[in-house]
Design a protein around this nucleic acid. Structure first.
Lengths: 139, 139
DNA sequence: TTGCACATTAGAATCATTCTAAATTTAGGC
DNA sequence: GCCTAAATTTAGAATGATTCTAATGTGCAA
């Protein structure tokens, strides 16, 4: 097979089209795609350093911002904790376990739409939605 | 009538029962109840100083935390902006206008419940929900 | 291949919030 | 009403995530 350490499944790079690509942006995006566990910028930085020791925290922030602005990645915010990053672009919310801080995706039910449960005032154009739940996992 | 400057409509203080009351907590709560416009801690501080010039910003933070912990007031978070405070305890979300930053309440439709639109994993106990929309107001 | 607009970088700066420790106040029991 | 313990207030320092700055490096269209 002859794989080496730089091999990576870049199968769904369509989200990156039109974004000027740099080694750092590639690495940051790959970090997010490989675990999909809502890391903070610092956590992305720690992981990215494994493959790219010279990358800086400022660059990780810049790359994450570029990916978010490009629509390839979404930010998740609980309270005023560090921003977390999520490469799942389908409609979904998030749940954070109060004990561990772990964040998981919560899919929207098929066919559900905002207007079904929210009384939106006339004339508002919604560009972004965050649905964030916190609580405990019982068992 | 013999009213004076300290008079205020304390009609719905039931939310404060069981919370140790101080002049500062009273003032902070009254500030939130009188405009109900989702001010930040600094904005609450500015308004509170009108009636209570000596109050400190640290105290405003402490009072807001006490009110939140007591369940008399809720926090609202957009991105990593300053926390905002909302005395509306009914089930509702928030909409922020991208231009002005203004935040308004968005009521949940009567009878709507979480399980209607979210595929919650088994065994999660939800203690808090934030539904935050951002966008533009067209007209 | 080249030019240059855009990216990366280290370190400083920012800013909301929390912490610290001393002075003050609340609420309950007498 | 007065006393006391425990909780609260306060100014200022500390924290920590993020953004800014300005110098250096690089992707990519022509």
């Amino acid at each position: 097979m002859n794989h080496n350490i730089t091999d990576f499944d870049h199968s769904d790079d369509s989200k990156l089209e039109g974004l000027r690509m740099t080694r750092q942006r590639r690495e940051v995006y790959d970090v997010l795609m490989s675990l999909r566990d809502h890391p903070t910028a610092s956590e992305v930085y720690e992981r990215a350093k494994a493959n790219m020791p010279g990358i800086s925290l400022a660059t990780v922030y810049n790359c994450l911002e570029a990916l978010v602005d490009h629509g390839a990645v979404r930010q998740v915010h609980f309270e005023r904790e560090s921003s977390r990053y999520c490469p799942n672009l389908t409609a979904h919310g998030h749940f954070q376990d109060e004990q561990s801080g772990t964040v998981i995706d919560v899919p929207l039910k098929k066919g559900a739409s905002l207007g079904d449960f929210l009384d939106l005032p006339a004339g508002v154009q919604v560009n972004n939605i965050e649905i964030n739940l916190t609580g405990k996992i019982s068992n």
